[in-house]
Design a protein around this nucleic acid. Structure first.
Lengths: 165, 165
DNA sequence: GTTGAAAAAGATTCAAA
DNA sequence: TTTGAATCTTTTTCAAC
């Protein structure tokens, strides 16, 4: 291997070959996963079979990773949203800390970051009290975490996917 | 009105009435928006019509907000992900700053926060250079922004929706 | 609220271009 | 890669429970 510090997965992930039809398809199905492919076909001026095959290809090459119905957390009783920066005692604890976080379902996003924090998470809880409980009785108990800093979201102004095209 | 500082929308959003069947449906369709409702029906041991009506109700009462195919940003060439805390010159600029951010498609999430930052965003760009360009030529130009702090994500460890049940 | 049955619509496959 | 046609499955509606 040319460089002992890299393996294949460390190279820049190659952007997929996406043409304008793919983009148009993606724009439609990333906004509504239940849209009939025949309707996509009509809007794109091609056959349903073409859309079917294109979507299959986009799935196969990993451009599309799946589909989901999205829920409104508040309607499920999740009224508190916060971001937290995590300081580790030692950087080498990273892996095990992330593993522990995966077991806390309220942590909905977890990133390995640079800057002042080693890990950065998004957490959604039912109440502020629920958040405090998780911080005190779960997060602070994780071996390797030195301390945490919390940024409460008072309101989510918007959320969307990466721009297509 | 009892309290001049609140209007109806400021009260705690009431969690919806969700029974175990709703939860089972949500678990399935939040993981795969394209799953046939008949398959959901089979897994739940009820009729397809029941699933159809339940999903319709969950949409009507706002528990489900929509559906989307999810894309892998890297496959679209978006290799840089960062979180940014925004300091405002004055809190009153909040509204107009958020409006300006909405016009920057690379900003995929925007929150009104407490703590050291007034606004907290997630931004996805093609490269670090692309991020720098947006910070220098777009973000810093927004009237009301004092300064920003950036936390680069080196790796997203996981991402998921709020726990159901 | 749930059901089964009917009708309408969509998904999937495939041979041909 | 795309297409239209054939087939199979799902969605949607609705009267009845």
């Amino acid at each position: 291997m040319e460089n002992k510090n890299m393996d294949k997965s460390d190279y820049l992930e190659q952007a997929a070959d996406i043409d304008q039809l793919d983009e148009k398809i993606l724009k439609l199905i990333t906004k509504n996963a239940r849209i009939p492919f025949l309707e996509v076909a009509r809007e794109c001026g091609v056959s349903g079979a073409a859309i079917h095959q294109r979507v299959q290809r986009l799935l196969n090459i990993g451009v599309i990773t799946g589909s989901e119905f999205t829920v409104n957390p508040q309607k499920l009783g999740y009224n508190t949203c916060a971001y937290m920066g995590i300081y580790l005692e030692k950087a080498k604890y990273h892996r095990q800390v992330v593993a522990a976080m995966r077991d806390i379902p309220e942590i909905v996003e977890c990133h390995y970051t640079t800057g002042q924090y080693a890990i950065f998470i998004k957490i959604q809880t039912k109440t502020n009290k629920h958040l405090k409980k998780i911080i005190d009785s779960q997060l602070q108990e994780i071996e390797g975490i030195a301390r945490t800093e919390t940024f409460m979201s008072l309101e989510m102004d918007f959320k969307r996917q990466v721009p297509i095209q």
